[in-house]
């Protein structure tokens, strides 16, 4: 079987963060982890090409995945393998999106990443095989991936036993006791010292290491970003008022303020009267612009990023965070002020 393998710029040996902006490209044969994968797959399968894209480029351009798919098809792929991306958010997003578009286009695909990778929700119908959290677990991760590739190539379905990450589905179920009785029982257990009992397990927020500080704000580009759903009046791009599926960006180059009547908040989670009377209360453009003029900010980024945090799942928010970081880094932004409601 002809296999095309996707890796990021780092695993392709094209550089680290300095090269994260490079666009989609194709290399002959195997590169980096693809060599180990090819060795484990044996003579029956052939990795004919390796696709590469910089993490920032892949995470901030929705055109990257379709472009890579075209390259895979041009290379005569029978099967597409992406990763392992381990816990890396941008890389995971890139692998998941590519696997999703390939699978949707009829090219069997699978991606590998850590089950907590924020990219995992973007994999669509493509199977995702669990990998370790970091590259230290490269060998076992690629071993599991190779076994899954072999099975998939033989036309068999992948299951949890193959390391497939199954996104939990809610299943209706009849229980003996009604909700009120179960709730009282949970309260009694809690009073009895049981801190774990629940019918609705809540996912953790995860831990993000704080970014290193800038030398001083006066010498860097600073961006304003918000989860307060600030949009142009009339909400032309139809941002949701709750449970955001996406985020938006709006130019503010040369603007001294967010004028009332020109901007509004569509957040459904709080009373927006005060925010709409003066949108700077949500996104402090007037103050930031004045501070830029006085030299306290090196440069204010030319656009702001916005979404709605109201009821938005943590997994989605994590993905937005990854995409925002990539977007801002690519634009040379070194610090961001996120206003939260």
């Amino acid at each position: 079987m002809r296999i095309v393998h996707y890796v990021n710029q780092f695993y392709a040996g094209l550089g680290g963060e300095d090269s994260a902006g490079i666009g989609a490209r194709v290399l002959k044969g195997t590169v980096g982890p693809g060599r180990l994968l090819a060795q484990l797959l044996g003579a029956e399968h052939d990795i004919v090409a390796t696709l590469v894209c910089g993490d920032d480029h892949a995470a901030s351009h929705t055109t990257a995945a379709p472009e890579l798919l075209k390259m895979a098809q041009a290379a005569g792929a029978d099967l597409l393998v992406a990763g392992p991306a381990f816990g890396s958010g941008r890389y995971g997003l890139a692998c998941a999106r590519l696997a999703a578009v390939a699978q949707a286009a009829g090219l069997p695909a699978l991606a590998a990443m850590h089950p907590d990778n924020p990219g995992i929700s973007e994999a669509g119908d493509a199977p995702v095989i669990a990998a370790g959290a970091t590259a230290r677990e490269m060998r076992p991760s690629v071993q599991r991936l190779a076994a899954a590739v072999t099975k998939l190539a033989a036309g068999e379905a992948l299951t949890a036993a193959d390391g497939r990450v199954i996104q939990a589905a809610r299943v209706g179920q009849l229980v003996e006791q009604r909700a009120a009785a179960r709730a009282v029982e949970l309260v009694l257990r809690r009073l009895g010292g049981d801190r774990e009992a629940t019918e609705v397990p809540v996912g953790g927020f995860g831990v993000v290491d704080p970014a290193a500080p800038v030398d001083k704000a006066a010498s860097v580009t600073v961006a304003l970003v918000t989860e307060g759903a600030v949009v142009p009046a009339g909400n032309p791009d139809r941002l949701e008022s709750a449970r955001a599926s996406r985020w938006l960006r709006y130019p503010v180059e040369g603007a001294d303020t967010l004028a009332s009547g020109a901007w509004e908040s569509v957040d459904g989670g709080f009373a927006t009267t005060a925010a709409n009377a003066d949108p700077n209360r949500l996104l402090p453009l007037d103050a930031a612009r004045a501070l830029e003029r006085e030299g306290a900010i090196g440069r204010l980024h030319g656009e702001f990023l916005t979404t709605v945090g109201n009821g938005t799942p943590v997994a989605t928010a994590r993905r937005f965070g990854v995409e925002w970081a990539a977007q801002l880094r690519k634009a040379g932004v070194q610090a961001a002020i996120l206003t939260a409601t």
Binding site: P210, P213, V214, R281, A287, A288, L291, A296, A335, I337
Partner: peptide
């Protein structure tokens, strides 16, 4: 508002764990 933004600018120049 200006004080809030100014404080945020101070904060991004401070290392935190």
């Amino acid at each position: 508002r200006r004080q809030l933004v100014q404080r945020a600018l101070d904060a991004v120049a401070v290392a935190v764990e």
